[in-house]
Design a protein around this nucleic acid. Structure first.
Lengths: 131, 131
DNA sequence: TATATCAGTATACTTTAGTATAGCGATATC
DNA sequence: GATATCGCTATACTAAAGTATACTGATATA
């Protein structure tokens, strides 16, 4: 995927690429999906486990986001007929592949901080996203 | 950056990585930053040019997002002393590097659609983000 | 009998994000 | 003299995202 290496090629950027980017941003959309996916990269987890590990999330938000991720093919939900009921959430293969996107984000983020931390510290206080 | 290749390593994931991911998501945060960055990958542009090329954006949002991107070190703003005044927006080197993140998003998005389009079409209607 | 756990849902609320519309002052064109 | 362009800002609004708090029913533990 070296398509953008020649910047002229950006002009040939097809609609399907725009949709692909949108889908990816959607996977991380909102305040909670990233930490949820992050914790599930460690392995499958139950509802209450995720709730405990994702700091400050309410059950309402967790429930909503897990449904969203399920509908979008990023996690699977499995109910076990125990008492009380056990529900396990696990990343799909596609969901697990998100770690590649996260790696590119880590690379960019680290580089960006390095090149900006000298000149304009205030830049890094932007974080609308940070609670 | 093969850190996550061994999944056990995820457990060692340092705080700086979390911040890096947050910074990157921040760069794309909201409805408009992605299309703005996208259009600026073609080269530097003036305010009105961007307004024309990013469909349906209002000057209020464009102004706000450009400020945000500037403060975050992703675009530069240059004022030329012409009449009427000319203002040019351009991606910083760091901003240009975002195309790597976008590539990984394209790769994931295309793959994800391929593996999901057979089984559950409804999944791809999720798009909260799409206007 | 009282309390806790499981996986959530219900209701009401606050905060943040985005939209709609109008306007600025200087200059250039009709 | 009327209108258009430049790069925005001001005000008022709607819609979306997120929070707070309480609650469910079955079971297990104290």
């Amino acid at each position: 995927m070296k398509f953008f290496e020649k910047l002229e090629n950006v002009k040939k950027c097809p609609v399907s690429y725009v949709l692909a980017v949108q889908d990816t941003l959607n996977a991380f959309h909102g305040k909670w999906k990233m930490p949820i996916i992050g914790t599930l990269l460690f392995g499958k987890k139950r509802f209450k486990e995720i709730e405990r590990e994702v700091s400050k999330i309410t059950p309402r938000m967790l429930s909503q986001e897990l449904k969203d991720l399920e509908v979008n093919g990023i996690v699977t939900r499995t109910v076990y007929n125990t008492t009380p009921v056990t529900v396990e959430y696990e990343l799909t293969p596609s969901g697990r592949e998100l770690h590649l996107v996260m790696e590119s984000m880590i690379t960019w983020g680290l580089q960006h901080r390095q090149t900006n931390i000298m000149e304009n510290l205030p830049a890094l206080n932007m974080g609308r996203r940070s609670a």
